[in-house]
Write a protein that binds this DNA or RNA. Structure first.
Lengths: 184, 184
DNA sequence: GTCTATATGTTGATAGAC
DNA sequence: GTCTATCAACATATAGAC
């Protein structure tokens, strides 16, 4: 059973990634909880406080994901990562990274640093997974692993954005093409 | 000499791609022109009207770009396209497509359709340029041209976003890696 | 500890002055 | 034709009630 505070983080996350940080207000959350908007300020005094908690939530989620994926081989792990983005796309959200990047100049330094740390964390995981997969000859790619990781991440990140514009099918094609090119 | 109306479009475009559609206000523009915010409403009655004009501006710009690039071979044209994104990145902006995608659910149907049209237009140009370049054996890639085009576009689009978070150098590495992989 | 009533500023937009 | 004075709605946030 999620606490009110946890529910607010989940709703805030959904709003940030569906509407954008600047487009949502505390009223959007308070209406869903049948309280006044000021009640949200009790749990998260300022909007940046909530954004902060949302980034923490994603850090925890990603750690749970990598933990869960760690029992599989590297090709499967990359596949799981891309499928995770497919579920983001289907739910009409963007990934945190792309969402915060768009509103980057509205974010204070503390959140920027937290998002940077999260992004480097994700990039490191992809990079290491690609490297191990290449060693085991499960994966193939020409660029240095970190650059390949950035290309995959930007494909996924902007893939969910492009899908809003040109349709869900385009995301699927990008995803399948990546898998086809790197999995032996 | 740009008219006031043209200047407003340029300032609006810069604000949309630097701060985001929902983060900027008419006051941001009016301050720079030393008028009251309501003066902007004379030229563009509503914010969507301005967004509309910004998309038109980009359609015209892109058409000028392809016209100018058409005298070069296909490898050079792709290089010019990626360099165009490099200049966006250096100026601290995002591309229109990624910027509007983030605020997609705040846009009305008319603008969404215009952005969709613009995006398909850009994708078509990349696709055709890739196809011609492959025929002439100037370019190499395995995926169908439109999918390769989407991968390049998403690399560039989210590359400018990633660069805000992890630094300008990462964009350059993505760009160089793409060119290295597709240019013979 | 959790919420509501309330304040203060900013937003997009209208009506009307020059 | 171009702009300013002004407004109603909404934003974030504080002080204080229960």
């Amino acid at each position: 059973m999620a606490s009110t505070k946890e529910t607010i983080v989940l709703l805030g996350d959904e709003l940030i990634r569906k509407k954008g940080y600047n487009a949502f207000s505390y009223a959007d959350i308070s209406k869903q909880l049948n309280v006044k908007n000021a009640a949200i300020h009790y749990h998260f005094p300022t909007k940046p406080d909530l954004a902060d908690a949302v980034v923490d939530f994603h850090t925890d989620s990603f750690n749970r994901f990598t933990e869960k994926a760690s029992s599989r081989n590297e090709a499967d792990q990359i596949k799981m990562f891309l499928n995770f983005y497919a579920s983001i796309q289907l739910s009409g959200k963007l990934c945190v990274i792309g969402s915060f990047a768009g509103d980057w100049n509205s974010m204070d330094n503390e959140i920027q640093e937290k998002v940077t740390e999260f992004t480097e964390h994700v990039l490191s995981w992809i990079t290491e997974t690609l490297e191990k997969g290449k060693e085991k000859e499960l994966l193939s790619f020409n660029a240095p692993a970190r650059i390949e990781a950035m290309k995959i991440l930007t494909n996924m990140c902007a893939g969910t954005q492009l899908a809003r514009i040109t349709g869900s099918n385009d995301f699927t094609e990008i995803k399948n093409s990546i898998l086809h090119e790197i999995i032996n």
